[in-house]
Amino acid sequence: MTERIDLSKSDQYTLSIRLSADGFSFSIYNPLGGSDFYFQPYPIHTQHSLAANVKSFLAETEELSLPYRQTNLLIHSSRYTPVPLELYEDEQMDTLFYQNLPRQNNEVILCNILGRSNSVVLFSLDKLTHVFLSEKFPEARFFAAISPQIEYLAARSKQGNNRKLFANLHPASIDVLAFDKGKPLLLNTYSIRETADQCYYILNVWKELGYDQERDELHLAGNQPKKELQQMLQPYLRHVYIINPQAEFNDSEASRIEEIPFDMQSLISCE
């Protein structure tokens, strides 16, 4: 709904673009607060490459041609790996990345340094997509979609005196983030087809990390159905909660839009 925002003031706003195999979306908002907020999804052609979809997206979306105060590019993918900050060196970026992930041609390795969790996320993006985005938005910041979730949930996990597991549900994948009072224990994204897959990965991570069924907590996020998964997990875990975006993000303008992804909300809250 463009009437929610005055695009003649775009140079005062932040543009955040999210790219995913599930579809693209973008938000425009005032980083200084207020009710100025705009969110728009953009369907993609699943038979086309990411670069081809990005090229069409940039050409067809009028709002992207305006000047902005800041532009964020959020890449949702499973091709990322976390590294402790004390082990990270710029010149070792590619080596560290390919120690954990299979090598692919024609990709660029990027990094996010995360101060709150004392870690670094290395992630990849195909070179042609990177060229299109860098030419269109030369001052933009690139983020792995997992990065703002880590920063936001690391702080969130310090509440209380127990360990917490967070699961962000997507149409064809699930982000699983485990913390012990702010310290990341596990960060991974799994491909899924149905609710049973989500249940399997969550319970497997819970068991492998030795979480306590009576004491520790699981929190479910995302704009996919969560009630069925909650009911499936409750016989095994005592504390299973569904994150309510409006309560979680202080009833912000972004939190009132059901379609906005949790990772994008996390990025906005960490700005």
Rank of each mutant, 00 (worst) to 15 (best):
R141P: 02
H239L: 05
Q70R: 15
E208Q: 13
P84F: 03
D11M: 13
L64E: 15
Q92N: 12
I192D: 02
F179Y: 14
H45N: 08
Y200K: 09
R141L: 15
L133I: 00
A254I: 04
N112F: 04
H130F: 12
E259S: 08
N53L: 06
N223A: 15
L50S: 10
N161K: 05
S266C: 13
L32A: 14
S56Y: 04
H170D: 01
I150F: 03
A59D: 13
Y13F: 15
Y200L: 04
Y201W: 03
S255C: 00
R238L: 15
Q224N: 12
A154E: 02
K181E: 13
I268F: 12
P235H: 12
P41C: 08
Q234V: 15
D212W: 02
P31L: 01
P171H: 11
K158Q: 08
H76Q: 15
T189Y: 08
A254K: 03
Q231P: 01
L237I: 09
P184W: 07
K207D: 10
V240H: 08
T71Y: 04
D126S: 11
F57T: 08
D212G: 00
I75W: 00
I260C: 08
E89H: 07
Q224P: 03
D180H: 05
I242K: 09
N112H: 08
S77V: 06
L74Y: 02
Q40A: 12
L50A: 13
F39L: 06
Q198M: 14
S65T: 13
S266L: 01
P31G: 10
L237N: 04
E60Q: 11
V108E: 09
S25Q: 14
L267H: 09
P261A: 07
I202K: 06
Q230C: 13
P184I: 13
Y68Q: 09
Q246G: 03
N72H: 15
C199L: 12
F262A: 14
P148G: 06
L237M: 13
L165S: 01
I268T: 07
E258I: 03
A247S: 07
N106L: 10
V54M: 01
P41Y: 04
Q159M: 12
K164T: 05
Y241A: 13
G160C: 06
L32E: 14
N188F: 01
I150S: 02
T95P: 00
F37T: 07
S269V: 11
G160H: 09
L185S: 04
S16I: 02
S252Q: 03
K127S: 10
S35N: 10
N118V: 09
L209P: 12
I75P: 08
S124R: 14
L87W: 06
E217G: 02
E259V: 08
Y88M: 00
L186T: 13
L133H: 07
F24C: 15
K207G: 03
L58K: 07
K207V: 03
L187H: 03
L237P: 05
M1F: 12
P102Y: 04
R141V: 15
Y200N: 05
E63N: 15
E3Y: 13
L153V: 07
D126R: 10
V120F: 05
L15A: 07
H130L: 05
E228Y: 00
I17F: 03
K55M: 08
K158H: 10
L96Q: 07
E217W: 00
M1N: 10
E253K: 03
L73V: 13
V176K: 00
F132S: 04
T46D: 15
